[in-house]
Design a protein around this nucleic acid. Structure first.
Lengths: 126, 126
DNA sequence: CTGAATGCAAAGCCTTTGCATACGG
DNA sequence: CCGTATGCAAAGGCTTTGCATTCAG
């Protein structure tokens, strides 16, 4: 059969860890498809759904952050420090902003946080 | 013809304003479909795409905020004060948190902001 | 053997878009 | 008369899910 490709059975959480390492080595916010393409370099033949499943799993475990700012695909970020994003409502570009210090009364234990500010960037307001 | 229902041509931005009022009168974060259902109470026969178009328009004008926390539909919020949300990564429930004061170096003029913290809520950690 | 992990393809959910139509000015 | 707003339905993008298969233990 060809439809069912060889699937070197992963021991433990091999693929999960490869994905996590990949995310940690990047400083941008790749989407699921980018992760998928990157994973293919390391693990040829890996399926898209596997990447989606591992991403969900990592998010659920709190090891990475899922960022949904605009209408496009979700972005993933292994930087769990409190940091922020600024998006221009005109050109839709996204910038990182320096770590933010926040005080508030949360109904639980905060493991990660994302601050998204929207406004008009300098280019668009000029 | 019936397929093309009577569409009382709105003067000015009537529907846009009705939608904005509706959002301002609520204190939760309705999604597009909820807005659609609510609008139908006021303007029978209004189409879903009209609601989507007006929501986008309001977001673009900076009059409301689009919140995309989890994988579900986008949520809309007419409260533009700097405030925050806390979502439990286990039960996925979302809480509002008190207004947050933030200082950071943004690459533009901030018109609105959303702070999303994730963690484990008290119920789930018990 | 049994259960967890996977690939593939199809289904699903939300949102956007094309198009013809109906008013407002 | 013309342009904008609208409804409907279809298309589209992204993500999830069903199912059969494979492999570790």
């Amino acid at each position: 059969m060809e439809k069912t490709a060889k699937r070197p059975r992963s021991r433990d959480c091999e693929r999960l860890l490869v994905l996590l390492d990949m995310l940690r080595s990047r400083h941008d916010h790749p989407d699921a498809n980018t992760c998928y393409l990157d994973m293919q370099q390391v693990i040829p033949g890996i399926g898209q759904s596997t990447v989606y499943r591992h991403l969900s799993s990592l998010v659920e475990k709190g090891l990475i952050n899922e960022i949904k700012i605009d209408s496009g695909p979700a972005k993933y970020d292994a930087t769990l420090d409190i940091h922020g994003h600024f998006q221009c409502t005109r050109c839709h570009q996204v910038w990182d902003v320096s770590p933010i210090n926040v005080q508030a009364n949360f109904p639980g234990i905060v493991t990660s946080a994302t601050y998204v500010a929207k406004g008009i960037c300098r280019d668009c307001s000029a």
